[in-house]
Design a protein around this nucleic acid. Structure first.
Lengths: 155, 155
DNA sequence: ATATTCCGTAACAAATATTGTTACGCTAAA
DNA sequence: TTTAGCGTAACAATATTTGTTACGGAATAT
């Protein structure tokens, strides 16, 4: 299956909005993500439901950040995108009554639960502002052309 | 995408073979897994390449365990099935030069690497014999019939 | 020898989840 | 009234595991 990249993409977007401090349209964001506005609305709507961003229709509308980057963690974004666990073992239900199958399932569930704890811990302490700072530091190291290769306005 | 259940399934099979101590045909194993022999051969061939099991064709052939359950870990089986990492963050490559995208990618890679460490640690210390013991203990607790679709009464 | 019982593999269909795309409706501001 | 936005439904494209069919080859029993 295709890899789920909604989390990184949302981090990318949120940090951009946070750094620019303003309002961005789905159209603009779509260009950031090399995709189209529908995908943006679809994904961002999950964040809106959790109060991370707000949206307004009509002229001059767009998306705004409702909480500063210092008060947003990767975990907040992750759980907004998916209620359930990040990691999950592929279990088997071929013979639910078989003690061996059950023990194998249980062992993997346990191991993944430990890994999930670790991951959630990392996500929880990773504020978006930390990632933003890293990005700024990185940008400073590079030649001045730091922004994404802008396409010329076509209209 | 569908969940990858090859690992649990192989654990299930290996432990069964280990406990029964003999040789099993793809046909028999397929019935264990509610699937068909081709799927079994396809998946088990990865384990053969790593010397975990051996196979013989012809009459009286089948699959045998080349290492005892006490000398096999979940990690052995996992790495036989996939060379690469168990966990991987969904990254983005929408604008590879954008410092924000890069920082977001890097942050997730880092977090997942920590989780992977935890998981590999768990897998590495989980010998198949431990899971086998758990299965036996479980089987003993239950009425002697281990197979049919029987469910614990839910309170 | 010949039939039977095995594995090995290629090729293709089915099921599933994310992503991309088109189309249309609604709202608010110019 | 027009225009710039979002909201949503519907469907195609893509990728991965799983299931299935159809072979061919090898070892053993008869």
């Amino acid at each position: 299956m295709k890899q789920d990249s909604r989390l990184v993409r949302m981090l990318h977007v949120l940090i951009h909005i946070g750094l620019l401090g303003g309002r961005e349209t789905s159209e603009t964001i779509a260009r950031m993500l090399n995709t189209n506005p529908v995908v943006v609305r679809r994904t961002m709507s999950a964040l809106r439901r959790k109060g991370i961003v707000g949206s307004e229709g009509g002229r001059g509308g767009g998306w705004v950040l409702l909480r500063p980057l210092t008060e947003l963690t990767v975990l907040d974004v992750q759980t907004a995108l998916r209620e359930d666990k990040v990691l999950s073992a592929g279990l088997s239900s071929d013979h639910p009554a078989c003690p061996v199958e059950r023990a194998a399932n249980a062992a993997l569930v346990e191991a993944f639960a430990r890994a999930e704890e670790t991951l959630i811990g990392e996500f929880g302490r990773l504020k978006l502002s930390i990632i933003a700072d890293a990005a700024l530091a990185d940008a400073k190291k590079l030649p001045a052309r730091a922004e994404p290769p802008r396409q010329e306005p076509i209209r």
